[in-house]
Nucleic acid binder design. Sequence first.
DNA 1: TATTAAATCTGTAATGATTACAAATATGAA
DNA 2: TTCATATTTGTAATCATTACAGATTTAATA
Lengths: 140, 140
Amino acid sequence: MITNMKHIKNELEQKGIKPTYQRLCVMEYLHEHLVHPTVEMIYDELVDRVPTMSKTTVYNTLKLLSGKGVVNEITITGTEVRYDINCQSHHHFLCKKCGKIYDVDVTCPFVNMDHKEVSGHEIQEIHGYFKGVCKGCLTS
Amino acid sequence: MITNMKHIKNELEQKGIKPTYQRLCVMEYLHEHLVHPTVEMIYDELVDRVPTMSKTTVYNTLKLLSGKGVVNEITITGTEVRYDINCQSHHHFLCKKCGKIYDVDVTCPFVNMDHKEVSGHEIQEIHGYFKGVCKGCLTS
DNA sequence: TATTAAATCTGTAATGATTACAAATATGAA
DNA sequence: TTCATATTTGTAATCATTACAGATTTAATA
């Protein structure tokens, strides 16, 4: 595992975020679980390691991190927010059968485009995703 | 207004959906309000015209319609689902300040691409959207 | 080290969107 | 008309998220 606590601590400090233990734990979890987890998933595992962990803290931390651009909120499913620490522009695939979200490596021109506006609106984030049936569900 | 009840009735019948009065009302509302309304917005106006209208019926109808591909669910905000009857492939822009969702006419290559799979996953829907600050909020 | 203010964390209660469910109503065929 | 089925309705439950206030930790300062 490349990402250790030291790295993560630096990562947060560079973004002007005080690296508390709880925040480091959430960050570490996200680095180790790139499957776009829910708050529930994050909390469930962290509370085992850190029994004092509160779900509200997970919510607060994720809101802080996404506000600072350290993590991305994925709102594909419509029922709950998923989180992704991979902040390089990339797209997602949501399987309608199993609910898994995959990273998809499709390069779309406007992801890397220079003009940061469309129809006069200032673009800050670009999102793209597919829905369908994933490889695994197709063959089973 | 081009879309009248007759047209909508045909539209539903062609898709194999029984054109009940409530369903026609929801469809008519969506045709007349292309601002990507919430269930709340739809219900609030319909219940004025049709006092017996139930919010559950609005939910049921929208679920039926989106299942049949007649309307699109927009899950950009993460807090509530918005509905769009414009089923031509197009993208959206969500303003982080005012919350409005705009249609955006950006043609992205993979929207019209032929191959209906990516990494072995079968693609059924393609979604793209931007987040930022809209024209109106920029100037005010 | 002691003091103190500010930031963070925690647990519980509230909110709000959505769904489950069962009774009421409408529809359509026999 | 009768009966089965589909649809609608209202209420209650669920589930993710937020509000909030008290407890704890942190960091600076004397």
